[in-house]
Structures are given as structure tokens and as C-alpha cells.
Amino acid sequence: MQQRIDEFQVDQLKEIMNIGASHASTALSQMIHKKVDLSVPRAYIDEIQNLSKFIENKDEEVTTAILKIFGDASGVMFFMFSDGDESKIANILVNDVDCAGDQKELEVSAVKEVGNILAGASLAAFSKFLNMNLLHSVADVVTDTADSIMNSVAIEIGKATGVVLIFEVKFIIKELNIGTKFLFIVDPNATAKLLGAIENKYK
């Protein structure tokens, strides 16, 4: 069975994304004791070679916590912090810790943990809402240019498919002047599974 995805289905998936993202933003807000605003989710469907075109500042250096999603639906989830923003968040989280070691290492570790917690929160919401079993890998933290990261993610997904579905939500922490991007890239196979789960829910 091969079919194309329509606008209505994209809207359904966006709504699911919204649920996951709000859980993640609540978790972030509780962790850093700051208000976190959410943007409206955006969804794109495009060929993998065009993925980096969705990034606004291609050459910008970003720190990314990236996690692989597996279980009933597979994909990739990642949190993108602009240069310096990851330090602001890490500093709040490890403020009281007397750090004798490498500051950078501590920051990476904090960002990793943020990635773990946020992914966990959103996946738990997806799992509960859709009755699916979704798991995530440990987070990996990479600092590089935004387009290198996007292209490399695209390739990993692209081994199996030419076209991907990608969701983007921005977490805005006004108090710290931070805008973090939360991206969820879904395998085409998983797209069908997610839609099936939504359908089951409202049967």
C-alpha cells in the first residue's frame, strides 16, 4: 500500500507533536525554574537533501543534543541550542556544583541530561496518548555548524528513504533570551504507524 500524506494527516501529526512538545517544555520549565513559551509547531515534508534549507542560520555554531527514537516508531529527536545558550542553561542546572574539572565537560553533560529528560517527557506523552511503545537512546551532544548537523542527520535517515517528515517547535525562554529548537524527524514507516495510532484512538 503506497499513498501520499495529505494536509489533514499533517495536521494530526502536528497536534501530536504539540502534545509531546508541551510536556517537554513543562519539564524544561520545571528544571530551570523559568517560564518557557512554545511556538506553533511547523511541519515539513521534503527530500533529505533539502533538509538543511530549513535552517535559518546555516553557518551558525549550534550545540545539539541528539537522540535516536526506536520502538513502535523510529526517528530522530534533537534539541538545538544557539552558541552560548547551552552554557546559560547548564549554568542554571549545575550552579551549586563545585566544579573542579573541565567546565566544558560539565556543560556537555548538563546538555545531555536536558536532552534525555526532554525527550523522555515528550516520548512518555506520545506513548501514553497513542498507546505506543517509544524509547530513546542516550543523548549525544555535538557542537558544529547547523547545516553540517542537519545534513548528517539527513543522511542517517536517508539510508532508508528519500523523503522525510520533520517537525519543529521553538522553546522560548524570554528571561534568558534563549530560543531552543526542538526537532523531531520521523521515518516514513513510522509516519504511517503514528497515523494508524491516531486513527485507533478516535475510532
Partner: peptide, 25 residues
Amino acid sequence: AMLPTRVAPKKSDAFIFEERDSVGK
């Protein structure tokens, strides 16, 4: 270029979006 070689899409893929392959992929 992005990938070593072309892999035929699996028939089991439920969602095949329209794909226009670029020459340099």
C-alpha cells in the same frame, strides 16, 4: 553527495512521498 549508493525503496514503506532525485545525491 550524500549517500554511497542508491537503495531501492522498500515495498513495505506505506508512505512514499513524491521524490525527485537530484543528480548529486
